[in-house]
Amino acid sequence: MIHDELISQHFADQSVFAESLAVGQISPGPNGLWVVCLGYFMGGWKYGLLAGIAIALPPLLVLLVARIYERHRSHPVVQGVVSGIEVGVIAIFLVVMGQFLASSSPSVLSAVCFLAAFGLTLQKSVPSYAILLGAAVAGILWVR
């Protein structure tokens, strides 16, 4: 959805999106804090902090969701909605990541980095921030 709202409407470009994801990965806290980085790139520290406040508000709806879910969780339609959303989210996420890969310039380095990151993430032992830092170092050393 962030991709739809900001990149498709040219408020930010694909490379800023990628940079935000990368910096967000090495920051502490939940994954979603990369939108703070995106806010910073779009309008400095004020936008960064505003993004931080904005992402804090929607999760408050969980209080309402929890009340409704506890009352109806065994209903088959509620279970169907949940499994439909789970399937949809995974499909959309895969497509967004595929578009990401397609936007990077094709080279031996990018193929190796993609495959290494994919394999290391599937093995749960390597944290994602270490993978991205490793890729950054490989990128610098490759040119030298």
């Binding site: 990368a22 990401f100 990077s104 990018s110 490793g134």
Partner: peptide, 9 residues
């Protein structure tokens, strides 16, 4: 960043 982009994917 040339290497980080495919790694993110």
């Amino acid at each position: 960043m040339v290497a980080v982009l495919p790694a993110i994917a």
